[in-house]
Design a protein around this nucleic acid. Sequence first.
DNA 1: TGTTGACGTAATGTGCACATTATTTTACCA
DNA 2: TGGTAAAATAATGTGCACATTACGTCAACA
Lengths: 232, 232
Amino acid sequence: MARKVRKGDVAADEAVYGAIRRAMHLGRLAPGTKLQEPALARVLKVSRERVRKALHRLVHEGWLTAVPNRGTFVPSLSVAEMREIYDVRSMLEAAIVRRLSEGHSAGAARRLKAHIADEKAALKINDRGRAFELSGEFHVLLAELCGNDELAKLLRGLLTRSTMHFSLSAPQQLHNCAGPHDHGDIAEAILGGKAEKASKLMLAHLAGLIELQSTHPPSAKRSDLVEAFRGV
Amino acid sequence: MARKVRKGDVAADEAVYGAIRRAMHLGRLAPGTKLQEPALARVLKVSRERVRKALHRLVHEGWLTAVPNRGTFVPSLSVAEMREIYDVRSMLEAAIVRRLSEGHSAGAARRLKAHIADEKAALKINDRGRAFELSGEFHVLLAELCGNDELAKLLRGLLTRSTMHFSLSAPQQLHNCAGPHDHGDIAEAILGGKAEKASKLMLAHLAGLIELQSTHPPSAKRSDLVEAFRGV
DNA sequence: TGTTGACGTAATGTGCACATTATTTTACCA
DNA sequence: TGGTAAAATAATGTGCACATTACGTCAACA
């Protein structure tokens, strides 16, 4: 990040924004942690204003919660909120797989097969981190294959928010999806044109994720900022 | 708005944000209009920093588009983007009415009936503005009746974005919904427990809206800022 | 006359200093 | 010793001044 800072440097903004998001995604920032602007500016080696801008953006996007004159905090997503998000995802993703089952391009089928192969490979060599990442991207991929950018963007936001409190609690020993072969089954149903089956499988898959996450209540301990942003 | 500006004054921020959103909703700001910070600060009688904050928020929420070192502009929503948004709405709202048809509380039924009555009353006395407002709220109401806050919040964003380029082009002589009795029919199907029929009606309703909006291409003329924010 | 170049003006982006508020520490008293 | 209040400290919020960039104007030249 040792670049010359010029006017309108969107890369620096993105770097700060990305660093915080990455730290959250890696589970380095426990819910309830206060993100102090001076401390963050020191750790990330940027000005306080840049930190402020990134924090405001993250608040607007729902990643963080701001309390006036108090500061910005990592939210403690309740189980109820999580269930609501999964509920919305169920509506959208059921419609997505149904639509894909009823018709998709040859390129879509190829990308889908390639992704499933990647996931299996990652599981085979026991690469937890990669498998976790890919399992999340699977759901985004399905949205992208519909050819609707708005849909993909929306689902990406829902996915990251729904997996947030999960990855915040215990990201090391988790797998992003209940059954490792769930994705393969869903893809198979889509490629076979079985709309109802694909829809049912997706709903069951998401229901399984809710159960899995509900059993992992997030811990209450606060995180240290210097530790959290080590190498992100 | 003649208040003493104190530390952490969230009301002032909200006022600026609301003024811009209201001006857009009223169709005062034509697509392509540049929102200059000094001019806005003069018109709204606030500091430039406050305007900047509001603009950044509106950009992050998708209402405006920012070009680095160039400024912030009222976006020209293409027909393709509009269709994508309506596509997502179709997925969600079909699921919503299906769910409501399969079961809802007595209070939900009462609120739904009351809303339909309000809409009919507004149409009867030919109150275009009120009818326009209510017709939009109908869709949000359905989401709210599901008891899922995340869902309602999401749909509200989609609704405002989808009606944006419409209200930007010719908001005066428009009705927000294709058939004036569409909402009544949908509500009737929901209250009668006819899930499939309600779903079909909603999809047809949204399809009609797309057609209606596709025939109204937004004008290309720029807006004057002092004129746009008169009394908002 | 059309085009290109430089210059002046005005906008955006950023860091800094200060005001205000919250939090912690400390001292004092019952 | 426990509790309360006040002062010190540190954080957030805001306006301002300056640097940088884009845009419009005008003149010179082919």
